[in-house]
Each structure stands twice: as structure tokens, then as C-alpha cells.
Design a protein around this nucleic acid. Sequence first.
DNA 1: TTGTACGCGTTATCAT
DNA 2: ATGATAACGCGTACAA
Lengths: 349, 349
Amino acid sequence: MSGDDNSGPLMADVARLAGVAISTVSRALANPGRVNEKTRAKIDAAAKQLGYTPNAMARGLRVGKSNVVMIVLPGSLYYGTSQVIPQVLESINRTLMQNGYNLMIANLDRDEKSERHILDLAFGGTVCGAIVLSSTLPEDGGRSLADAPIPVVALLQDLSNVGIPSVVTNDREAVREATADLIALGHRRFLYLAGPYGNYHDVERYAGALEAVLAAGLPEEAILRSGGLDYRHSFQIGVEAAEFFARQRDKPTAVIATSDDMAISFMSSAQEKGYRIPDDVSIVSFDGSPVCAHCSPTLSAIQQPMEEMGERAALMLIGYDGAVCDATQGPIVISSKLVRRKSIAGVAR
Amino acid sequence: MSGDDNSGPLMADVARLAGVAISTVSRALANPGRVNEKTRAKIDAAAKQLGYTPNAMARGLRVGKSNVVMIVLPGSLYYGTSQVIPQVLESINRTLMQNGYNLMIANLDRDEKSERHILDLAFGGTVCGAIVLSSTLPEDGGRSLADAPIPVVALLQDLSNVGIPSVVTNDREAVREATADLIALGHRRFLYLAGPYGNYHDVERYAGALEAVLAAGLPEEAILRSGGLDYRHSFQIGVEAAEFFARQRDKPTAVIATSDDMAISFMSSAQEKGYRIPDDVSIVSFDGSPVCAHCSPTLSAIQQPMEEMGERAALMLIGYDGAVCDATQGPIVISSKLVRRKSIAGVAR
DNA sequence: TTGTACGCGTTATCAT
DNA sequence: ATGATAACGCGTACAA
């Protein structure tokens, strides 16, 4: 790469052309108010004529702060239908850009190298803040992202218990309400399709389903579970769950899937086996990707407010909303909402 | 945000602790070979003890080059099932990270502000290269990304005619072959679902279909077209196309969709109207998202080699593969391939 | 209101 | 093999 071009006009060039001192140019560009109107015009003209663009690294070095935020993503992303990551990325990027910041993306793999890399960014002054979507925090040789001299915000999972301000959805409550809805429709036996057991989301979502079941006076055994694989294998979870479903003597009448992909592959597998949806079995899923509206039948889903969460996290990070950026208050919770479509029906028996 | 913490050990601190000069520390860290083994050990120990992390901006300023690459994405991303952007992002990021580079993302909206922002990154030394996925190049007041003092590579579309090295797929050829396959299966009438007319991909893909049809001695009219909306409305295109299909007296027997979303919504709409797939109409689509394997019926698709394209573009940009980074040779073409699934069948009449 | 002078933390040149 | 020193391009006290 030939980016070592040290061409490009400098502030000194602008100053010379405008017939003023360098510092005046600096002020005119940063604090247009604190310089004579006429001088400013001359400087602006000179800058424009030369096509001057300030050097961001020099400024950053001098000011001791960059304007770059990094987002730490789990290393092995998963490419089903979920648009969670891209939506959140766009939302964050838009918010940052509007406030003069840039977004750098960093993948946190399992290997030491990627951890060190991310920590170098955090401790080396490259970034002035981090939004974390990975479930673990990078650590390496005594350094941890939690101790970095930059603010950190967690998104999609609650890390406020370790002092990191967090933005999450009300997973538990949303599942509880959806399950209660199903119970109101007459459902008494459920199949819960799980992501990796122990995962933050899985714990919350299962807890929500359980709360609803218990609240209705049903036993814990009213919920069967299937899945437990990593989210990368969501489609497979749905396929296996359909087989599991077919094997059951006393079949569940409703499925709660913790991702759209599980629901989609469950539906097509079950339909292939001759089960009708929602007549034989209702299904509700998670994330609410746009494709849900175009499944057969259209898929009811708990829709995550990605745009809003991304924006909120970004604003918290850059201190636009400093007062709320306090982990001791617990996480900021933004509501998901159930979007009802045709994959849910009452139990007719 | 409180990132203005000028804490953190400096190279001078390491030097003091190790009992050597600053410049020796610098060498020991950058060129471990050109310093005494014993000295190096002392320095490494000191650095580790202090938790020293080099300041990237200071280095960048001194060296006159950053290690950040930016990717310019179209402003209004589209969230159907397509995983093109996220897959390409991950692939590029992984490749860059392995080679010591970082990835910054920039959305190119229609407004002047985002154009200026991107140009500031390019001209201000923040980034040392750009990978462009947007269909237009940002321009503002005389500056254009094409004239920036950094290398630029286009991905997914061919900009080699304006001097920008490009990495593309063989869209045209892939569609031609897929269409020829359909013709071999007895299909004689086609419905082509278009993205925005005039769009690079649409032009190429339609051309491929047309070439196959003409080569088989069929008239241009063998291909009906529907769609023409922005890719953001892909689902709607499929829905409307199903209505269009239902209205036709002499119906096409095969559909060529230029995105998975069009295909998915066409299938579910058509099925709802009572048409069977592939018995009444075959369908093949584009992108080949993972969900294609879990549609009903499973969806045949021309699968784009996103991983490979991303990697190739990144390597080209950072000069790993300098010899090939020459736009005059035309674009680098990486082959898509048709993945056959159950949405295609022969014509039984 | 404008100019002078210094320093941000690192690398590279030169001399030792 | 190592050390002293001068940049890199900009922002900001301070002085004028």
C-alpha cells in the first residue's frame, strides 16, 4: 500500500497563503467565533483553495484523545437471518457520525492475538471508548478492557454487576408475556428451543417462560427443552427440535424459539413431517427479523429494538447523556414487543 | 466521555525502568533483532511490568501513515435476509487484523455531511486505504475519494473503468448458466425479478439471463420482468411479482430472482395463491443466504463467495498482493456458483 | 484579536 | 549496540 504519501497541504501552507500565523488558522478552524470575521474568511478561502484537511492523528496526539469508538463483537458471528448485528452497527455508526465520532470494529476471537489487539486499541489511545457485544471481556497479561482508561458500555447483555453501564432489552418480561398469551389461548404444554445453555439470553428467556407457566399454576414440566447448541447452529436446532417434537407422545402445542432461525427451520421441518402451523402447533420466536413477515405462515416474534438500543448505547458512551451512564443503577432496559402474526392460534380440542 | 485520561506509562517510563535510552526501547519493540538479546529482555520485562502500550497516534504521526482501513458502505442498508454486508465485513476485518490493520466503517448517505466526513478520513490521514461498496464515490468541494492520497479498492462492483481496482463476482455468467440449466429442463418462459433498474448488478444479471435465452434460440420476450424497486423493498417485489404471475395467461414456468428476499416472498405469496413450487413454477435466487436451505421448498440459489471476495479485496488493498492491484487489467472476478436445491424442477407438460 | 513558542509520544538519523 | 536529538502536524498557554 502506498499510503505513505506525505503530500497534502499543511496548516502552515494555509497560514502562508492567508498571510496569518499558524495558530490563527488553528483557531479559525476550531473556534470560528474567536477570530476576526474578515481574517476567518481569508483563512477559509485559503483552506478551500488548497483543499486543506486537518491531520487527525496530529490533532489527536496533541489533544490526548481520539474520536474513534470501537465496537467489540463476538469473534464467530453467525449468519442466519438475524440482522441484530448489522442493525445495531448501523444505528451506532449513524449516532456516532452525527456527533463527530468514528466507529472501528473489532472481533474478539478466542485466541490471545485478538484479545491483545483489542487491548492495544484501548490502551494505546486509538479509541476513546468501547461498546461491547461479546460475552467476555478481553484480557491479556494483566490488562483488561475493564481497566482501560476509556469508558466502556455493554450492549445486549447486562454487565452492570461488574461496573459496566449496560443497555439491554427486557427479554425475560417479553417472554413471560408472550407465554402468558399462549396460556390464555389454551396452551398447556410448551417446547422451548434454547441457544447455548447458560448464555445470558438463554437464562433470561427461559426464566421468563418459566415464570409465566408457574404463575398459571402449571408445573415446571410443562416446558420441554430442546437445543442447547451455539447460536451458530440455530437452523440445526430447529430441525432437531422438529424431530424431537415428532417423537413426543403427548405433544406440546406451542413452541417458543429463542431465534428466528430456529423457528424457521422448525416450521419447515415440521411441515414436511405433516404438522400444520398453527393448527397443530403454534410458534413464536425471537429477534423479529424482517423475513418473519414473509414466512409461511407469517411468524410471530418478539421484536428487538435494535435501532434504539444502538443509539442509546452510543449516546451513553459519548456522554451525551452523562447522568444515566451509571452502572450502579442497573442496566438501561428498552422494551421488546411481541409482534403477532399467523403462527399463533388457540388450542382447539 | 472521560477518555482524556493522559495516564498510562510512556516509552520514557519503560526506558527509565530498564535503564536504557528511549530510542533503544523503541528499537527493541519494533526491531527486536537489532538490539542486544539481554537488553531486549530487560526492556520487555520493564514494559510488561508497567503494562506499557505504545501510543498509536504518536506513531502514526511520526511515521506518516495509519494502520486503519475504512470500508464505505451504502448509507441506507437493507435488512432482509441478506448476509452479504456482514459476511464481507467479517472477512475483511479478519484479514486486516491478521495483518496488523484495523477496520473503520463509514456510511455514505446522500447528504453532504457524510460525504465530507468520509473525505476527511481519507485526506486527513486517519485511514490508509478504503474499500468501497457504495455505488457512488464521495465528493465534496473539489475533493473526491478517487484523488485521495490512499489506495482504494471497489468490492462487488466493477469500478476498474475509472481506475479503481475491483473485486467482483461473475454475476452475468452465473445467471447465464443457471438460465441455461433451466432451459435444459424444458423451461421456455421466465419471470425475472429485478432490483433497481440500471443498477450494476441488475444490468449484469439480466444480461446473463438474456444471453442464455438468445443462445437457445428463444426470443427476448421469453423473459418477463417484474420489480425495479430498490433492494430495500425486495420482499415487496416478490409479493407483487406473485400477483403479476397470477395475472399472466401464458405463465412463466421459472422465476429468476435477483435476491433471496424476492424469492422467499414470491414463494410464500405464490403458495398462498395455490401455486406449487417447483411443480407449477421453478425458482432460483441470488446471494444464497443460509436460510435458503431451510425454506419450503429449499431454495436453489446462486451463492456469492463473500468470504473470498472480502479477503481478496483486503489483501489487494494492503498490497499483500501488489502485482494484481492494477485496475487496467479489469476487475478480479471470483466465481459464484449455483447451489441446486428443491425449488427447481423440469417442466412436465 | 493575533503571533510566539512549546509539547503531545513516538520514530529515525546521526554520532558514539 | 546504544544514546542524544530532531522532527511529525497540530493546539494552546502566554505574551504582544
